[in-house]
Design a protein around this nucleic acid. Sequence first.
DNA 1: ATGTGTTGTAAGTATAAATATTACAATTGG
DNA 2: CCAATTGTAATATTTATACTTACAACACAT
Lengths: 140, 140
Amino acid sequence: MRISTKTSIALHLLVLLEVFKDQKLTSEILAMSTGCNPVIVRNMIGGLKKAGLVNVQRGSGGASLAVAPDNITVWDVYQAVDLIPLNELIGMHPNPSIKCPVGSKIYDLLEKPYGVITDAVKSAMSGCTLKQILNDYYGG
Amino acid sequence: MRISTKTSIALHLLVLLEVFKDQKLTSEILAMSTGCNPVIVRNMIGGLKKAGLVNVQRGSGGASLAVAPDNITVWDVYQAVDLIPLNELIGMHPNPSIKCPVGSKIYDLLEKPYGVITDAVKSAMSGCTLKQILNDYYGG
DNA sequence: ATGTGTTGTAAGTATAAATATTACAATTGG
DNA sequence: CCAATTGTAATATTTATACTTACAACACAT
């Protein structure tokens, strides 16, 4: 398994919000660019709003960044839109035998190495900002 | 998503191979402890064999480690059994609009930060050995 | 050399997860 | 009040994952 496409969609949306900040960006328009459904976009934007990263107007429509791009990290975005906590990044098989001495301990045994791995993901994500992506967009 | 349960199953199997190395371990027995199907176990063991990590006897049955536990890392195991390459760890949305200047570049833009993240996963996985897990099993 | 038990692998089935769609109430501004 | 839009629920569809069945290839014991 892998991390869902939600983070990618959300980052795409945030780039759009900055690049076209002078325009009114409805979920319909954002859906066009991302290639996914307007309802999905609204859910994503909703998650980002809950996290304080964007502003949205309910009736009139239109979304915009609420935070400067260099203060938005991939980690912030992931947490805002992906419901799966990072400690479930690596799937565990659901029915190890509790009668087996190994099976009964396997979750505890895997917890340590998996914790190291997910911590690495978290800190790598925390080091990547929207600003860097935008620089790459304008510069490259 | 997330990384599939395959890595967890494979690590479970490797622990069993070491802990019960004096016994003949068939896919049937291994399936009991892991709680998954014997065919899945055979596929896992097959992947580990291809990677040179275990020995298996075809007709007579029974599997064993081919490499010392301190020379087997979680990274080795992940590569051996999970078919999804790490650069697909974070899913990309499949249909960004090529008519939009952002949509047409989004894959390239995400490549950099995602590369940093997957490199972090790789190096964290490379630092976790089967030996450490076994020490935890016996010691804890 | 024959029988039993096992691995290796393919094909088909079932389950679970992710994403898309439909529908509509709530809200804003003209 | 009307048109456009968000927020959200319920349902459907698609995709990914895991399971099951089936059987040929193989090894060993007798």
